[in-house]
Amino acid sequence: MTAIVDIRDLRKVYDGGFEALKGITLSIREGEILALLGPNGAGKTTLISTICGITNPSSGEVTVGGFDVVEQYRGARSLIGLVPQEMSLEPFTKVKDAVSYSRGLFGKPRDDAAIDKILKQLSLWDKRNARVVELSGGMKRRVLIAKALSHEPKVLFLDEPTAGVDVELRKDMWDVVAELKAQGVTIILTTHYIEEAEAIADRVGVINGGQLLLVEEKDALMRRLGQKTLQIELQEPTQAIPETLAGYDLELVSEGQALRYTYDTRGESTGITRLLGDLSAAGLQMRDLLTEQSSLEDIFVGLVKEGAA
């Protein structure tokens, strides 16, 4: 797959002298969903703003669809749709006018059918003639998304699209995202909700302190960094972990009905075979085995801590 967004050694120093991006290099593939995770102030919004033309890069290069975002901004920006983190909308504009306006601004000829389709897709059809002030917060968020989609972008940036959004809208939103992905749109989203990244992203990037700590296939990331647990259900409950098993990272759970073994999938060997042998030797009979992968959240928290250390 080719890179649709190519970021090279991107740095951003704000006027006050604060370095918000410290040399980010990242290739975003056409058609993928990339989730950017990072704590508050990590630089996610700054990164998106610099790609979209809202802030000037201090150094480095960004291309979108092969167009340099500074030198060939017209080509680059025509491809981009942006849903900003802040809910900024003109209060007295009608919903459908706001969406049409965005389409025009991005150089597309007026197309009422296309706008109607987007409004229906985002459940804004009933509100198409309402003014923005009359909408609830979640509906305003939908309007922002509709505006970003109005000019049929090839690359869509969603900066914390689900902050303050109810379950239903979140579901709607992921349906829209899935549909866009099916159409070949590349989607970059930032979120604090790790389950979201886990549920919909193809790749996950972790940013902290203006640095990209890693970017990896979500599955690979979880395999590579994930700790797993093995739950061993016992035939007979036991009161204590036998002395002979003291060398293993074991925990007694379910009132002695089971043992939980934590191991690192990155290690040379998991130690499972040896453990199972030692269990039988200690006279414990197994009824069932269950493995569990740790969530992205665990990985994420671990990474950010590592970066801070």
């Binding site: 979209c52 033309g53 809202i54 901004y73 017209r74 080509g75 680059a76 920006r77 025509s78 981009i80 942006l82 900003p84 802040e86 900024s88 909308l89 003109e90 209060p91 965005s102 601004l105 991005f106 150089g107 505006k147």
Partner: peptide, 17 residues
Amino acid sequence: FPKFIGTIYELLSAPVN
């Protein structure tokens, strides 16, 4: 006004000179 309410983001990110 767009600067004040933040909608300037759209103008800045649009392919306009």
